[in-house]
Nucleic acid binder design. Structure first.
Lengths: 164, 164
DNA sequence: CTCCGACCCTTTACACATCAATGATTGAGG
DNA sequence: CCTCAATCATTGATGTGTAAAGGGTCGGAG
């Protein structure tokens, strides 16, 4: 009731925004939980999602430094240290010193790690596609576009914040 | 150009889906990081986001059981135990035994916890609205709608999965 | 050359999250 | 009454995440 499209009051704007944020959080959490459920317990090659992310980054470009992985995965350097520690312990990757810059430690896929991520990637894609089946193709494209714009608004926002 | 709505190839569908999922993940992570950055260091009353979530649930309905909180917050019961432990340690909430069912432990806000969440809620809403300012009102409504539909498709999906 | 800021990685302490196992309690049926 | 399945909360082991401090290395300014 009442005329539509009147000037939005700050309160209403905040409410819609918080509701949007809650839905983003819940979609993320539910999807993550469902992916985990389909992934981990399945015998054969299993991997946690952060480990999957690490390996997927390495198959795209092998021999990245920890700092590069930290930036791409949007996590802290300390986190990557632990992630690589455990993956190395399990024989999936190995650190190699950079001969030119002794600060750097580069991470390389080992045979076992390459085999694992190769087998996981298509399964992962199929699961994701299946989980998004609740939206039709047009909605998926639109959602993808809006999320892309949202993400973009952050990265630019961040650089501004870093400068100011 | 080209006729629209041709049959999508599975590969393309998966690619769009994975890209959508990556954007959802990144939007979530970036927004979470920015919220954390604005929240925690700010002096006065600070709280981590899970703690914020706990308190926000309690102010909506005080005296919930741990199991109810677990369901609402989409986390495991064991996690809620620790969350409440720490909040109780810090004097924000307290456990009280349910007189009718000795299995239950109900969580109540203490004065300090109520004051904290009351002061945090409007700040949180303002930050969220600010972070979504990269989208115009129409886009926010559409994004909110699509995320709602996506989330809904999970919960129904879950019940099916539980049955099958 | 020497200093010094910048960068890279690690470590520590802590919070959060899962899963699986456990003990306590309840309620329903036999 | 008694058993037994279901529910609730906790615990322990492990993984993931942050922030902050610290040590090693590099490269440029003096």
């Amino acid at each position: 009731m009442t005329a539509k499209a009147k000037v939005e009051e700050p309160q209403a704007l905040a409410d819609v925004s918080v509701s949007l944020w809650v839905r983003l959080l819940e979609s993320h959490n539910l999807m993550l939980a469902e992916l985990r459920r389909r992934f981990v317990p399945g015998r054969g090659g299993a991997a946690t999602l952060p480990r999957f992310d690490l390996l997927a980054n390495l198959i795209r470009e092998d021999g990245q430094t920890l700092a590069a992985l930290s930036r791409r995965m949007l996590v802290t350097a300390g986190n990557v240290t632990g992630l690589v520690d455990r993956a190395e312990r399990d024989g999936l990757v190995e650190r190699r010193a950079d001969p030119e810059d002794r600060r750097l430690s580069r991470v390389f896929l080992k045979k076992k790690g390459r085999a694992l991520i190769t087998s996981l990637l298509p399964r992962h894609a199929a699961h994701v596609a299946d989980l998004l089946a609740g939206l039709d193709a047009k909605e998926r494209r639109e959602l993808r576009r809006l999320l892309g714009k949202l993400r973009g608004s952050f990265t630019s926002h961040d650089s501004e914040a870093a400068v100011s």
